[in-house]
């Protein structure tokens, strides 16, 4: 680990940053062909095991940021360093291997609708198996066991052979979570996980993602436009506005002034009140469920 920091070793795909940092972005810039500057000189470090919420208005560059990390969008310039691997300069083959280490969860679930739940979950292992094994759906038994274990963890093991388009929104997002986790990732990239879900399911899905991150000691970047959800579940909030970081701090540091810098002028007092109430509700629910021995 420390060898990576020695100047002689930096020449290869190694980064400066010590092992406590899972992901670090340095001077990351993305300019689209249309000329829009989606990300402007972003510097961001995510420590090992941290769940970070990225908030900001639509068009602030949240989606671009997480897509630059796994290079679904090619950054224009800057460095992306995942646990000592510099991602921005990888070749196609190396990039595929690096993508296995980053699980991604999508806004509209992004399940392949005509494939079964099991095939969708196992598609998370594609980076690890040969083409013919995946073509004949002949995955190693350990992968199948892990898929069943994950589906059971999210309460969907009885649905394995259903087609993905037969499931409800919340169920689909659980399958999406399983697909990301079966990659055995170090980092989760989560893009608006609750945007198409109802409030109750949104909370359940956010709670599930955060619990799973704790269980597996994963770091996560969660793009979310819902400020209360971000405050309820994340340890750290980063606010993005027009491609620049305008807030980086704890959830309770989101004062009306801060929200105004991120989103613009609006009556934020009532929003903050509501978060406090919801927090209280959550805690009460947790304590009652603990009391009933659930």
């Amino acid at each position: 680990m420390f060898a990576a920091c020695l100047p002689t070793r930096i020449i290869t795909n190694h980064c400066f940053f010590a092992s406590l940092t899972m992901l670090s972005l340095d001077k990351l810039t993305k300019q689209y062909k249309t000329g829009d500057l989606a990300l402007n000189d972003i510097y961001l470090e995510i420590p090992d095991g941290q769940v970070m919420a990225l908030i900001g208005p639509s068009g602030a560059g949240k989606s671009t940021l997480i897509r630059c990390v796994n290079r679904l969008v090619e950054p224009t310039s800057g460095s992306i360093c995942l646990n000592e691997t510099e991602l921005s300069s990888l070749s196609q083959g190396e990039l595929r291997r690096a993508r296995r280490r980053m699980g991604m969860i999508f806004q509209e679930y992004a399940l392949v609708e005509r494939l079964s739940v099991m095939e969708n979950v196992l598609s998370g292992r594609l980076g690890y198996v040969s083409f013919w094994r995946s073509y004949f759906r002949n995955f190693p038994q350990t992968d199948v066991d892990e898929a069943y274990r994950l589906l059971a963890r999210v309460g969907l093991d009885h649905m394995a052979d259903k087609r993905a388009d037969e499931l409800s929104g919340g169920q689909r997002q659980r399958v999406g979570i399983c697909r990301a986790l079966i990659q055995n990732p170090e980092l989760l990239l989560v893009d608006e996980p609750t945007a198409s879900l109802d409030p109750k399911t949104s909370r359940q899905i956010m709670r599930l993602i955060c619990e799973l991150c704790k269980e597996r000691k994963l770091s996560a970047i969660i793009n979310i436009h819902d400020v209360f959800l971000a405050q309820m579940f994340a340890e750290r909030i980063v606010g993005l506005q027009l491609g620049e970081i305008v807030y980086d701090g704890p959830p309770d540091g989101l004062t009306p002034d801060v929200l105004t810098t991120i989103y613009g002028e609006e009556d934020w007092e009532s929003t903050i009140e509501k978060v406090k109430e919801e927090d209280f509700e959550e805690k009460r629910k947790d304590s009652t469920s603990l009391a009933s021995g659930k």
């Binding site: 679904l72 690096a98 993508r99 991604m104 598609s123 594609l126 999406g176």
Partner: peptide, 9 residues
């Protein structure tokens, strides 16, 4: 995009 992000060939 989702399938590509898993590191598939």
């Amino acid at each position: 995009e989702a399938v590509k992000s898993t590191g598939s060939s």
